[in-house]
């Protein structure tokens, strides 16, 4: 066996790849993933339009009827609503489609570092989340004239940027459970009810007691609490929500990785 290994073509230093080249693979993967979705209006338009149109309607045109805090309150909720989409769709639906069309098989056969694939999608989702947050923040500032300090804006931006990660995890898991063209519909059936039940469209205080009690089950509820704290409307401590979201992310990714390893 030793002879076999030692006589393998050793004329090329193929066995290792310089860390600079491995890094380049990560960068290229992320770059391709971002370009690919930025050029895809079918993904980008609904992701950007839904939260901003909702915010325009309820937060700005109808907002002041609900009291002075409404534009800020809805900025937080629609921000949460907005950043769920790139995670669930950019990660989940794209994985479900790529498993179906053979792209994932090809990528697994190629010497692509598995981490580059996941990181690429993650960066794409974070980038879209950043665009959603910027859009809503500019609308809040210039159209709704919401009273936001710079540090509140920054803190909401950060919350939205990193808040996409649990939904990347959930999307990843969903992408391993469902496959093919039916994926967008199925993901919507999770996305929209979850948003509603977490009080992103109507404040939880207006909802039946059962829904209020159930709300802490949803990751979007916890992200929304963080977003509300970021704009100065938080009622509870921040850390429990951060911990719950971290736990969700780890659990989703762990479960998804297990499924991917087993079933491809």
């Amino acid at each position: 066996m030793n002879t076999l290994v030692s006589t393998l073509d050793s004329s090329r230093p193929m066995n290792g790849m310089s860390s600079r080249r491995v890094w380049a693979a990560y960068v290229e993967e992320a770059r391709s993933e971002c370009l690919r979705y930025l050029r895809n209006p079918g993904f980008l338009l609904p992701t950007l339009l839904f939260p901003s149109v909702f915010y325009l309607m309820f937060g700005i045109f109808l907002g002041h009827a609900n009291g002075p805090d409404a534009p800020r309150y809805l900025l937080a909720s629609y921000g949460t609503f907005g950043v769920m989409a790139p995670g669930l769709f950019g990660f989940g639906v794209s994985l479900a489609l790529e498993r179906d069309t053979g792209l994932l098989t090809l990528k697994r056969a190629l010497p692509m570092p598995a981490g580059a694939y996941l990181l690429g999608k993650m960066i794409m989702a974070m980038m879209v989340a950043a665009i959603v947050a910027m859009l809503l923040l500019s609308m809040a500032t210039f159209l709704a004239h919401a009273s936001l300090s710079f540090s509140q804006m920054l803190s909401l931006f950060g919350t939205d940027l990193f808040g996409v990660l649990p939904f990347c995890g959930l999307g990843l898991l969903l992408g391993t459970l469902i496959k093919g063209q039916g994926a967008p519909g199925l993901v919507n059936m999770i996305y929209l009810p979850m948003a509603f039940l977490s009080g992103l469209w109507f404040p939880l205080s207006m909802m039946p007691a059962l829904i209020q009690q159930l709300a802490p089950v949803w990751p979007s509820y916890h992200l929304n609490q963080l977003a509300l704290s970021a704009v100065g409307l938080g009622q509870t401590a921040v850390w429990p929500h951060v911990l719950v979201l971290c736990a969700y992310t780890v659990a989703f990714v762990w479960w998804a990785a297990r499924r991917l390893r087993r079933y491809g």
Binding site: M14, M17, R36, Y37, N40, G102, L103
Partner: peptide
């Protein structure tokens, strides 16, 4: 796998790239 090249029969690559 860094020493192989692959062309699979059914692989739909990203259309927008």
């Amino acid at each position: 796998r860094r020493r192989i090249g692959v062309m699979l029969q059914a692989a739909s690559l990203p259309h927008t790239l």
